[in-house]
């Protein structure tokens, strides 16, 4: 249905040729814009209706006081079902520290949260299939788990800003929620508005990049340099992806276009994770609670992990 809409707009309405570069690019852009936004609205609405997202306040309560291994597994797992807004990462960091949650566990949560969430998972399954979704989620969880442990080894306590240790947090507030059906509906509509309002730019940007790749990057060039999983293509993908930011949904169309041209799967996964997990704006926000050295190690450890994941999948493929 969405492909037909794309075909109609590009080839019938605008009269572009399916053989050129512009035609397929426009077709991809129209198709993916319609498909992704329709899915986004539907999925966020349903998640809102079910109240399937867990608040960071709850995560803090579940994780605090647990033995470290359990705490880390919980942090990684719950990070995947907690909606993430980089504007909350400072209070979140402080709240975890104040609850006595080990820093390594907090880092595990910070890695998992932006990379994986229910909305992105449903879209991934719908657009890229369950197999790629499973690989993405499994490697994301593994990187979050191991990345937190690696950070812990560096004794990051010394890089936490002094004022953070002094903050006393009050009793966690859980405002009463209206669980009647109209209440749930209002909440779900609010979620759609809030989340789509926040991420639409990144999604559109991702679709634009995907469309350019789809229309303008020659298949022969991709086959020659990116399809065989050349070793340098993975670190190159990570280097490009780390400073870039799009949320987890925005990277899906880019991956879609790359996979359609048969770019090696490890290279695609490494790029997706690097774009979704690390971003310059989040780093600047975290700078309020952490010395830049901690952030540099954080970025380096994650970049290293993504390269390993990419190489691993390219070897297996």
């Amino acid at each position: 249905m969405f492909a037909a809409l794309g075909d109609w707009t590009a080839y019938a309405l605008l009269g572009l040729s399916p053989e050129g570069s512009l035609g397929p690019a426009v077709q991809f852009f129209v198709m993916d814009t319609a498909k992704i936004f329709a899915m986004l609205v539907a999925v966020i609405y349903v998640m809102g209706l079910l109240r399937a997202m867990i608040s960071p306040e709850r995560v803090r309560e579940y994780v605090r006081g647990k033995p470290k291994g359990v705490a880390r597994s919980l942090a990684v797992g719950l990070g995947a079902v907690t909606p993430f807004c980089s504007c909350s990462s400072v209070p979140l960091f402080i709240g975890f520290v104040e609850a006595g949650i080990p820093l390594g566990v907090t880092f595990s949560f910070l890695i998992a949260s932006p990379m994986i969430n229910e909305v992105a998972v449903v879209l991934l399954v719908g657009i890229l299939g369950w197999k790629l979704t499973a690989l993405y989620v499994a490697s994301g969880l593994a990187v979050a788990y191991a990345g937190g442990i690696a950070m812990e080894r560096l004794r990051p306590e010394r890089w936490v800003a002094d004022y953070v240790w002094q903050i006393q947090m009050g009793e966690t507030a859980h405002p009463a929620v209206d669980n009647s059906l109209p209440g749930r509906h209002r909440f779900a509509v609010g979620e759609v508005r809030e989340i789509v309002g926040r991420i639409w730019k990144w999604v559109l940007l991702g679709i634009g990049v995907g469309a350019l790749f789809h229309g303008y990057v020659p298949q022969a060039w991709v086959s020659a340099y990116l399809a065989g999983g050349e070793w340098w293509s993975v670190p190159a993908a990570v280097l490009i992806g780390v400073p870039l930011y799009a949320n987890a949904t925005g990277v899906i169309p880019v991956a879609e276009a790359m996979l359609a041209k048969e770019v090696a799967i490890g290279t695609v996964l490494a790029l997706m994770m690097a774009i979704a997990a690390l971003s310059l704006p989040e780093m600047l926000i975290l700078r309020k609670v952490l010395h830049w050295k901690a952030l540099a190690y954080y970025a380096a450890i994650l970049a290293g992990a993504f390269v390993l994941v990419g190489w691993g999948f390219n070897l297996l493929a």
Partner: peptide, 24 residues
């Protein structure tokens, strides 16, 4: 903000009671 036990912003406090946390 943290003294009110709120981690997800924006939060709303009415007459000293937290009535909302996270999102508009």
């Amino acid at each position: 903000i943290m003294r009110y036990g709120v981690m997800s912003t924006p939060g709303v406090v009415v007459d000293g009671e937290v009535v909302h946390a996270g999102g508009v």
